[in-house]
Design a protein around this nucleic acid. Structure first.
Lengths: 229, 229
DNA sequence: ACGTGTATGTTGGAAATACAACGATTGCGA
DNA sequence: TCGCAATCGTTGTATTTCCAACATACACGT
């Protein structure tokens, strides 16, 4: 790890979820106020270590970061890939005393912005307006993640493949506001999302089609109003 | 629905997750600033309706609120019970334009505090300190929920009952910082949490015990260091 | 046209899970 | 002490899911 030589571009930052809604003129003031740290990490270097108590939110400026979980027996599991502009550690940073259950490592040479959570919240006379925006953004991100997790969980908590599919398709239909809609997955991706076997899922989809519950073509679906038995 | 006759007690509020950390002296100022609405709902009355775009966070003062999901075919599903002091709608309130996928109804005659999300964020000269605390609290709640969901999802995304169990037990062990720990569930609750059949899970637990991977008695567990095959 | 790769549907046997039923144990109150 | 309810383990069977393999269709570039 080293302090970064890379200078971050305001044009880049203002497009990130965290700084969305700020202008390039405001950013220098805001950054001066929240005093982030810039750090460079080499490939495979550990950014955050399982068991630590962190107070900073990380943002990937360049490179890529992987979130990794190591269980009791030492089995490693890649939980997530974080790409430039995306943040990580935000759930832990706002919970002092909550120890990291995961590690973050640089999947490539990466430069990272580290923002202290307290600096994001504390009042600062010169930039209150920006703070408010920042807090709005981080709250929105957290809420968005929350909804996505809740939604996925509501599908996955169904016991059978068919129920999982119906839960997911119903949700997509309601989101689209129509009984016809496109899903953002191919079959393999949908199976991965629902944590089921692709072929079994494909099988189940076709059974439901044959029973007249729905029709589909590739990623287009059309739900029928008849109550499933 | 009617405006509430019930007067809320500061002693009650200061213990809630949302107002935690404020004193009884500060609360009147803070409440005056965020201008919450008090509403009474009769049993079975709808508080929030699926499809709405809400901007307020709700807090149950008395009674009980149920979060209900209705799918494409009209099947109803109780998602959550909200008890006095707990909040609901917070994920949606901070995401303008995100339409409710669930409804909230009063499971009993209930009085509800509704706080506009913008009032929670906007700067107010007289009470900035309280605002900061409020934002801290809501961010912490959101983060906490996030971690809980992520954790549950990481168990549930495992394909087999055994893997789900190992994931959960490993997580509990790491949280306890010991290979011996207590879990907060009985068998049926654990099965419900992991979305598996109780008897199958019980069976799997005993198999793992017989294979020497762990021992247990009621809700006490002891993981063995040997790598599972 | 041809080969290649990808996505999808289909099938059959192996393995895991769900389900129903029952026995054993415990704790609790009548 | 007795009965009752709750919890947990066990078993057998039916069902579902997984897995590997293969068939089909389509897009793409040569």
């Amino acid at each position: 790890m080293s302090t970064a030589g890379t200078q971050v571009s305001y044009a880049f930052l203002k497009k990130t979820s965290l700084f969305r809604g700020t202008t390039e003129e405001e950013l220098p003031k805001l950054l001066g106020c929240i005093e982030p740290a810039y750090r460079d990490f080499s490939k495979n270097e550990i950014i955050l270590r399982q068991g630590e108590d962190i107070t900073s939110v990380g943002m990937v400026l360049s490179g890529r970061v992987q979130i990794i979980e190591e269980d009791f027996w030492g089995n490693r599991n890649i939980i997530a890939d974080i790409w430039p502009g995306d943040i990580f550690g935000e759930s832990y940073a706002f919970l002092p005393g909550e120890l990291l259950r995961v590690s973050a490592i640089a999947a490539e040479n990466s430069s990272i912005l580290l923002i202290d959570a307290r600096h994001m919240l504390e009042v600062c006379s010169s930039a209150c307006r920006f703070h408010t925006r920042l807090v709005q953004n981080i709250l929105a991100e957290s809420a968005k993640k929350n909804l996505a997790l809740t939604r996925k969980l509501s599908h996955m908590s169904k016991r059978s493949t068919r129920e999982k599919l119906l839960s997911y398709l119903s949700s997509q239909s309601l989101a689209a506001g129509s009984d016809q809609f496109e899903i953002p997955f191919n079959r393999q991706q949908l199976a991965d999302y629902l944590c089921v076997d692709r072929s079994a899922m494909s099988n189940e989809l076709c059974k439901m089609r044959d029973e007249g519950m729905l029709t589909f073509d590739k990623s287009s679906f059309h739900l029928k109003s008849e109550m499933p038995l």
